[in-house]
Design a protein around this nucleic acid. Structure first.
Lengths: 200, 200
DNA sequence: GTCTATACAAAGATAGAC
DNA sequence: GTCTATCTTTGTATAGAC
């Protein structure tokens, strides 16, 4: 029998290429500033074809965010599941995607980019961006608490506040990096963060 | 003789109201997502009238940024000019505008908002946003150095790096605040920053 | 799944009257 | 300085053929 390559939620090649490009466009130019035409020209297909895969721009936006947050979310689970790892190593893993964005001159966190225009987004997108923020801060909070419980961290402020500060510093560093081209800042922020969490 | 109220660079009342609203719209929705129509409806004048005051959207954007950066810039000069002030007090003054933005649920720094969509901006806007970032980081650097020279600060990293970290943390905190509604973070970030700069 | 063709609205902008 | 009217281009979206 012919092998079926259709997994439960499989997406066609084209759909994936559209998602990839849309994600990049949102990260570099923002949601409001990209259009089906941009994608159409870059991929060599018509706007109508894109509508076949994603009925509306809002739908496309939702799909991009969900793929991104789910991918990131699984990574968080994977990191936290490794119970032998030190809490510092876990935090270290968390920062890896940010450091990767920092490598390229014009990319930031997808949700960081969207946060800059959150009031202009369709509600379905806004909700998801806000959820990304709260989820990540919750995750960071749990890792910080774990570190304290294991004697690996010493916090100057309650875990939730420290988590928000770390998250905000990472997002802010990406913003600054893109505006001024300073790639080193991300690494510096991570280094400072680690130094400050270590017990005296 | 009739008193002339026309100062050298005076702007008409309407022009100022347009600028005020445009600034707010950029801060809350972004540059790409606001239109002359938004302004027209809110102020009760036609789009054509707005074009009379600002020939193009780019011109309006430039005017908004320049007013903002000049106002902020003068404040920086004023702060630094008070030679008796402690360096900590100077830093404290610097954070005031950020704390004010944090009061409102949906405002961020104008240039922070624009930084999220720099790649989509007309070059004249992009330049000015980048300059805002480098100017502010340079100013912070000079204050940090002053503090070190006067024995008021003790830095864990070179002044320019520390300045970038502070600036990034402030911008990031505003971003997070708007996405999650947590107004306290700005204050926390400022408090942590001050604590970390104080000599042992 | 992709195309052509088209609809429809919005955005940015201009001309010219008042 | 503001208006009406209009123009052009772009953006989003749909219908229907292939």
């Amino acid at each position: 029998m012919p092998k079926t390559k259709t997994a439960p939620n499989a997406r066609s090649d084209t759909a994936v290429r559209i998602l990839d490009l849309a994600e990049r466009l949102i990260q570099t130019r923002g949601y409001s500033a990209f259009s089906y035409q941009d994608i159409s020209e870059a991929l060599g297909i018509t706007k109508a074809s894109i509508h076949y895969h994603f009925e509306s721009k809002t739908d496309l936006g939702i799909a991009v965010i969900e793929r991104y947050t789910e991918g990131f979310g699984k990574e968080l689970q994977r990191i936290a599941a490794n119970e032998n790892a030190s809490s510092l190593a876990m935090l270290d893993h968390y920062t890896k995607p940010y450091l990767q964005f920092a490598e390229s001159p014009d990319r930031v966190c997808l949700c960081g980019a969207l946060a800059g225009e959150v009031m202009a987004l369709p509600p379905q997108l806004r909700e998801r961006v806000e959820r990304f923020f709260t989820d990540h801060q919750a995750w960071l909070t749990s890792i910080l608490k774990r570190g304290v419980a294991r004697g690996e961290f010493e916090l100057a402020a309650p875990a939730p506040k420290t988590a928000r500060a770390i998250f905000g510093a990472l997002q802010g560093a990406l913003l600054v990096k893109r505006a001024t081209g300073d790639v080193s800042q991300l690494r510096d922020v991570v280094a400072v963060m680690k130094a400050q969490l270590s017990p005296a």
